Computed example of a mutant assay.
Amino acid sequence: MSTSTQGEFHIPPGLTPELMQWLRTQMAAGVPAPSLLQSMRTAGWAEHLARRALALPEEGELPFPFAAAKAASGPAVSIEKSATGVPEPDLKTDPCSIKVGDREVHVLTSLSNPRVVVFGNLLSDAECDALIAEAKPRMQRSLTVDNQSGGEALNQDRTSNGMFFQRGENEVIRALEERIARLLNWPLENGEGLQVLHYLPGAEYKPHYDYFAPNEPGTPTILRRGGQRVGTLVMYLNEPTRGGATTFPDVGLQVVPRKGNAVFFSYDRPDPATKSLHGGAPVLEGEKWIATKWLREREFK
């Protein structure tokens, strides 16, 4: 098969002009290569063709279609780890909001110890509704990580239903994950898949830590997938009538659920001294839907 051309750029053999145009558009919008690769896999593209479209060519060159994207919109966004060694929004200039590509996220509350930041306007109403609709058919009784075995187990402290999306599973999730990576200055690939949880009246998640206890027998198995958890982002997809706050008992903080808002907290070591103890207070009236993104030290696999 001869290599076709589109303008001055050569299309790799086996790939269509339509796909390459889509890739140019996605890269111009700042979507990272790992997310694009996952999207192509989901759509049924052969692995070797997807990688041919995304792989770096000769030394120092940008691959097609990244060169076109760069020419059209400047350098693609590269998410590096924050200088603090844990996920951290850029609040050095005390901004009231942070631009994260496709959205302007409001900074509502910031606490240093523990490190807690409450964000507004992280998700649109439509995105919240879409996540709930996609998650509903897949809900099951929530499990927790079992530090004894390294697997999952039923925990009486957690009385919600939940499910996990694959990273980059659909368009809404891809856009949200890119937004989170920009907001928290943490590589997209270091995030676990998004978990959606549903709490009915009386349901709760008693105070707990999100890091993995270092001395438990199952922890080495858990850490092989990406190291320790170092940050958590809880996003509110709706508003219960009463109850359902995210609580931080060590500092007496309660974050009330507001649709589209989120609370972020980080922990630089697996130790109670981080004051990252938190819980989901019982829903007293109505129901609560949240989406949680856990962030790891390294790429999560």
Rank of each mutant, 00 (worst) to 15 (best):
L19G: 03
F66D: 14
L295W: 05
P89C: 02
D157P: 01
T246G: 10
L36S: 09
M20I: 09
T246R: 13
T274L: 00
K301A: 15
L54N: 09
G150W: 09
W45T: 14
Y211K: 05
V31F: 02
L194E: 03
N161Y: 11
R179E: 13
Q140I: 13
V86E: 06
E177S: 09
V105H: 03
S160A: 07
A273T: 12
T42D: 13
I79M: 14
N238Q: 08
G7P: 01
E18V: 10
P87R: 01
T219P: 05
P187A: 13
T42P: 00
L123Q: 04
F9G: 02
T42C: 07
A262E: 02
G74V: 06
A83N: 04
T246K: 12
R138N: 11
G202H: 05
S2Q: 11
A213T: 15
A71T: 14
N215I: 03
L237A: 06
A262R: 08
R229C: 01
W186C: 01
E297A: 02
L197C: 14
G162K: 04
R258A: 14
S266A: 15
L284W: 08
E104T: 15
R52H: 01
N215S: 13
K293L: 13
S2G: 10
L37N: 07
H278E: 11
G191K: 02
F66S: 14
A175L: 12
A83E: 12
L49E: 15
V172S: 08
T274Y: 01
E47T: 04
R296D: 08
E192N: 08
F164K: 11
A50Q: 08
L176T: 10
I180M: 10
A181C: 05
A281C: 02
Q38D: 12
E58P: 08
I180W: 02
V283N: 04
I222W: 01
N113V: 13
G252D: 07
H278Q: 07
L233I: 10
S39Y: 09
S39G: 12
W289F: 12
I173K: 03
R258Q: 15
Y211A: 03
S112H: 07
A33P: 09
S266R: 11
R52V: 06
G280Y: 12
G162W: 04
A273Y: 03
E134G: 07
G218E: 00
T5R: 14
R51A: 14
L253R: 05
N238T: 05
M20P: 06
V105Y: 05
T292P: 07
